[in-house]
Design a protein around this nucleic acid. Structure first.
Lengths: 309, 309
DNA sequence: ATGAGCCCATAAGCTGGGTTTATGAGCAGG
DNA sequence: CCTGCTCATAAACCCAGCTTATGGGCTCAT
């Protein structure tokens, strides 16, 4: 009834091959043969053949050159496969995260992490961990620094990750990396057209769009700008990083966010980064654990993966 | 018959919700209601309800808190949604690229780009272009610098993108960004354990895994190391960047690759970056067009998006 | 030559997940 | 207390993707 919309408005899932098809395409690229790709994925050769065909029909592009001696990607197929690989990699990160989230109490490694770290860094670490120590069952819970500390102290978690200035009492920690905070606005904002960098006092005096209290970002910003007149009252406070980004994109005002959260938006120029002069807007990313010797076993494995971020 | 493999070995697509489900989850997060999310995607409310349910069953995690006044994400749901967003974004890039690849000859903007740029940067630009100038039909063809130049001169393309040292004759150009080349090895390679940076002469003397001839990377490397004894014969030459990366990961030897191609591998520590002393391994990324005034219309729109990479 | 062993395509039939329509139940607010 | 929103359940449908069965093309070894 409503299928013949302009192709721009149809749901994404109808314009893009599904994950299984993309996996298949990657397998074809790896093996150079539809049949072997099929076997690799545990399906039959006709299934693979038909699936690749329907993918080509959907995209309107020939992806593989079939020959009696095998199948090779066409020039377009190489490109499509590379794009598909990125989708599949994102799906693998999703999977790694979801598996940890479902993780049972009896997991060998119970991790508690701040939202930002759980969202952007942990899936990658889990994939690496799976590669190095297959079969390590990890369970994940996410929350702010206080929650992480609480879980560690209650022995409900073996290893934690937090960002922010201090280390909660009762815990030992190691810095595993840093995180730059950046000032962003919509491309239409006056700051986006400035010639010189922003002065700390200007930033301090400007009401920002910010996360609700308890955010590690806020802490760092407060400390950095204390010497420049103190932080102005927020323009508006929102519940999630995503909501903040959406508000900034829509032009509601500037904000200060972790660069980890901004990859996509900066690349697509939905947001613009505003340089600031003479303030160090960095914060440490820390692994934390109950006071005492460095945790052994799987916790140590994960820690060594996370180290040089 | 072979379903009950350990859950690690089942195909990814069976462990992860499909793109439609992820889109739905994002819509639920946006709208705070299953019903409204359903309407937004053009399906009925029971369909949405059942789909979210089956997603929760698949993941083994409650994602939304249902109430008679709407649905909000649970804490786990927030995390899952953020991971899903990254998958969907990758799928959007896929879609943008695929649409351009299918683009007809009558497109308003015909782009020719080098593989690296087409693969890593163009989809993002196309998404941004779609946001700013909806309805601009773009067609894309990919090839090395010579092919790009040829297509421009034959008036089969309006705008090109190349990386490398020189600008082909007959074309004007503008630098739109830079691209660092980095030396990488498997984490097990001796270079990964060095204390100090690599010396240019060492790099020059070592056989590398490299792309086949004509690669822009090779050109730059040759020029940079000419003063240090010249580049050694390649250890092995492979057809695609992907094949090179796979070989390096497997420990076959070191290689020099564009940092654009290395995001995932470095983050997951499958590859390690080796610092090099005193050589500038950079190359320009350039937009190119037929000699004459800067192209107008959609070409100019795209150019201005690509500019400050 | 001729058969074996790859490759891929086509055809027919089954199955299950996602859909719709139809209905009901819980809570809010005029 | 009725209207309007929320979500859940049940039954029927449909199609995408799967399997099995088959055939044709090419290459290589016998």
């Amino acid at each position: 009834m409503s299928r013949n919309d302009s192709e721009d408005t149809a749901p994404l899932a109808h314009r893009v091959p599904d994950l299984g098809a993309m996996e298949l395409l990657l397998a074809v690229a790896r093996h150079g043969s539809l049949g072997r790709a099929a076997r690799d994925l545990g399906i039959t050769q006709p299934a693979a053949s038909s699936r690749v065909r329907s993918m080509e029909r959907l995209l309107g592009v020939a992806l593989v050159d079939r020959s009696p001696r095998g199948s090779r990607l066409t020039a377009e197929g190489v490109l499509v496969t590379d794009w598909a690989r990125r989708v599949v990699e994102a799906a693998e990160a999703f999977d790694a995260g979801a598996q940890a989230l479902r993780g049972r109490r009896d997991s060998r490694l119970r991790v508690a992490a701040s939202m930002t770290i759980a969202e952007y860094l942990l899936p990658g670490w889990l994939i690496a961990l799976r590669a190095e120590r297959p079969g390590t069952a990890v369970s994940l819970s996410a929350g702010n620094s206080a929650v992480v500390a609480e879980r560690l102290l209650a022995d409900e978690a073996d290893l934690g990750f937090v960002e922010g200035l201090g280390v909660p009492v009762g815990l030992d920690s190691a810095v595993i990396g840093h995180d730059r905070l950046v000032v962003v606005t919509a491309p239409t904002h006056p700051w986006a057209r400035r010639r010189g960098p922003l002065l700390p006092a200007e930033l301090a005096a400007t009401p920002l769009i910010s996360r609700e209290h308890g955010s590690g970002t806020r802490q760092v910003l407060d400390a950095a700008l204390a010497a420049h007149g103190g932080l102005a009252e927020p323009l508006i406070e929102l519940a999630s990083t995503t909501a903040v980004k959406a508000a900034v994109v829509s032009g509601a005002g500037p904000s200060v966010l972790s660069e980890l959260a901004l990859g996509e938006e900066l690349a697509a120029r939905r947001l613009v980064q505003i340089p600031v002069e003479g303030v160090r807007l960095r914060r440490d990313l820390r692994a934390v654990w109950r006071q005492g010797p460095l945790p052994a076993g799987p916790a140590r494995d994960l820690l060594s993966l996370a180290r040089p971020t």
